[in-house]
Write a protein that binds this DNA or RNA. Sequence first.
DNA 1: CGGGCCCTTGACGTTAGTCAAAGAGCGTGG
DNA 2: CCACGCTCTTTGACTAACGTCAAGGGCCCG
Lengths: 237, 237
Amino acid sequence: MTSPTDIALQAQVFRAVPKDHAMPLIAKGVVKEAGRGASIHLQGERAHSLYIILDGWVKLYRMSPCGSEAIVAVLTSEDNFGEAAAIRGESYATGAESVTETHMLQIDAHDLWTSIEQDPVLCRSLLSAAITGNRALVHQLEQLKSHTGAQRIADFLLGLCKEETGECTVVLPYDKVLIAGWLGMKPESLSRAFRRLAPYGVKIVKDRATIQSVERLVEFADEDPSLSWSAKTCRTN
Amino acid sequence: MTSPTDIALQAQVFRAVPKDHAMPLIAKGVVKEAGRGASIHLQGERAHSLYIILDGWVKLYRMSPCGSEAIVAVLTSEDNFGEAAAIRGESYATGAESVTETHMLQIDAHDLWTSIEQDPVLCRSLLSAAITGNRALVHQLEQLKSHTGAQRIADFLLGLCKEETGECTVVLPYDKVLIAGWLGMKPESLSRAFRRLAPYGVKIVKDRATIQSVERLVEFADEDPSLSWSAKTCRTN
DNA sequence: CGGGCCCTTGACGTTAGTCAAAGAGCGTGG
DNA sequence: CCACGCTCTTTGACTAACGTCAAGGGCCCG
């Protein structure tokens, strides 16, 4: 069985460093538990910790002044969050809330800061992790700007499935309200968008999605949205 | 007058480091010129350089397989790009194209890498710059996910204007096709969305926008989109 | 003066959000 | 064991937001 330490060593922030560089910091961490729906930290709160998820799911969100929330990331085991603010001694740019029963390793911002100061290897690893985070955000932006809801779902499902070809069944890792938020739409729209994938061989039953042909779905996910209706017309003719 | 060196010292990546840490790298840089519409590097190309913009404007974009482009950033003097890929010896995650006559300082990826290895202070500065970039992306995501086109324009205009209250005139820094792409919409939609701001005291003439009341515009930009029509109804009654 | 580009406008179709309602699953308490 | 309330999810009807296609005006530059 995997111990908190083992998991933490695999986290983004530490993945690129030898064990002995990460251990001193991990050893200072405290295991923390959060129930479903519990707030881990608030947006704008002074950053006090870096968190590494041991198990469970956590969402990061931005709250608008008007009260609507935009989900920025959905994280699970071996992911970390809060490091950006913790490193610079700023306040958190997003709120964090656990969406399942969750265990985390909480590492004090001050410990993190002194470790970075003393260990260039660790600093480079954090830099690398930040760049990875950057790429994820860019991917999300690209999806939002140039794909329809149905295409974003297709991309999401494809990200869950390991196969690169043929048939595949995936389990939706969290509830549809959260998936909708993550993909930038409302639950109602998600529900309808799922149904639009049916012609492309996708069936949803409860929290299981079966993909008849991964290739076909990939093609749909990458397709030019403006051609979708005419393509559909051609296809069905 | 400001020399390339002076500008480079103010760049994101170097802002947080003492001059003598940045100078060795800057000294190795080469000034490069690019005409309007020139490609600086392609998405997927092996990263060879970090660039610091001396003057002009550069857009970073993602190209979908279907050919549509999503603009991820629009940068100008003192901004830098390409460092993420250069640091890790990967390929560029985005393409870069100059949208005006542009001068840049080009720094070799290998030089960058060795400097980081040797100088922890520089590494921390890059980390900090990456985090800043992250925040910008998160802000863009928030805008896209929970604001209408008109609200995103309002946010964009407010970002251009220094005043925090009262009246203000801003000059649009680049053409409307690019603004539209940056805000995640088509030029036609931008044009119409501009007109929607008229009731809130915004007038566009050519490339000049005059804001009658910054406060009013801020209020509109933060407003819950779902309330906009009823609010408008109330307002006009 | 002609051509190209940027920008705008109109007409129309698609996509997604809103509001309302109802069905499905699930745990609790009677 | 069943009724109840709760949350998650789906559906329908309607509206708003945005993209597409097409056309036209203004402007710069050769």
